[in-house]
Design a protein around this nucleic acid. Structure first.
Lengths: 167, 167
DNA sequence: GACATTTGCTTGGCTGGCCAACTAATGCGT
DNA sequence: ACGCATTAGTTGGCCAGCCAAGCAAATGTC
């Protein structure tokens, strides 16, 4: 087995008492991301980049602020990710003639070529991770996760200023 | 609203067709991590570090290899994280007299002091994210996520060599 | 028209997390 | 007893992702 020895083989720590759902969620999402990462690296992408490419495939050329909005990422994250994707040749960035501050982003031919692989990776991982669940359970899981998403989304609103970390 | 504008307000990309569960999972886990991060930063921790501390609180002094095993992290990740936690004074590292290669790690007094805050943060976030779910739904969600965890854990086994990224 | 504000993006710095390569110490086999 | 394989940690490099600070262009206000 490689470095990441199938994350967390042991019991959840007692600190999760009163509802280990958050713990399980964190664990599942991490292994999920890792599994996705393994598939992606064969395609030449890092985890996270595929979401960016999907947006571009779906919506075509977009300005950077739209990508930031729809992916819910920090502007600086998007800037750097796009710089790398551009350097890889998967993406082309051009100044927006209508607004000289803005940058238009689109997938290149080479970027388009990744589409099938990425979609395949997603559906493959989907099948693998949902194995053993019947359709009813899958929709139920999706529904419950949707509620979590909504709850967390609501909470994300109240920013609340925090003093910077002292360390 | 701050930078992270409540991740992913829009429809999931079409690439998620055939089961957007993975997409929703990724989204939920990210907002969950962010929400946890906001609570943690008030305590002086970064997301991820609290899991390490929980292990130490639960099991007491442990050697680094145990932490790596139980958290399912890469050795280098643990090394660096512990270096930072040590610098913050939350953790003490001492050579294992029984094995001069090994390092024994334990929470300091100052580290112990974080316990209540972290556990409170977890239960608080748990309550917040599971709002609106009755007990039956919560256990069902936990059960389904457990299955995902198991499926993904199984898949983590077959390492499969991958050529390094060309970019 | 001049100025202030908001928007769009970039840079620098920091962490978590991975991989690859390396050192040091332990153990095992002959 | 010697030598090789395994194990424990470390370092360096790279990416995602965050925050804070900054710059330039567009927009609003007087």
């Amino acid at each position: 087995m490689t470095a990441v020895e199938s994350a967390c083989t042991e019991q959840p720590p007692s600190a999760a008492r009163g509802g280990p759902v958050g713990m399980t969620l964190a664990r599942v999402s991490r292994t999920h991301r890792i599994a996705m990462g393994r598939r992606l690296r064969e395609l030449g992408l890092y985890p996270g980049q595929e979401l960016m490419m999907m947006r571009l495939w779906d919506r075509g050329p977009a300005r950077q602020s739209e990508l930031i909005q729809s992916l819910g990422l920090d502007p600086s994250t998007v800037t750097k990710m796009l710089q790398r994707l551009e350097q890889c040749g998967y993406v082309r960035r051009s100044p927006d003639p209508a607004d000289r501050r803005a940058v238009l982003v689109e997938a290149t031919e080479e970027g388009q070529a990744l589409k099938a692989g990425v979609e395949n990776a997603w559906s493959d991982l989907e099948a693998s991770s949902l194995a053993g669940l019947d359709p009813a359970e899958r929709t139920e899981l999706a529904r419950l996760l949707g509620i979590l998403a909504e709850n967390l989304r609501a909470e994300a609103g109240d920013a609340g200023d925090c003093p910077p970390l002292n360390c």
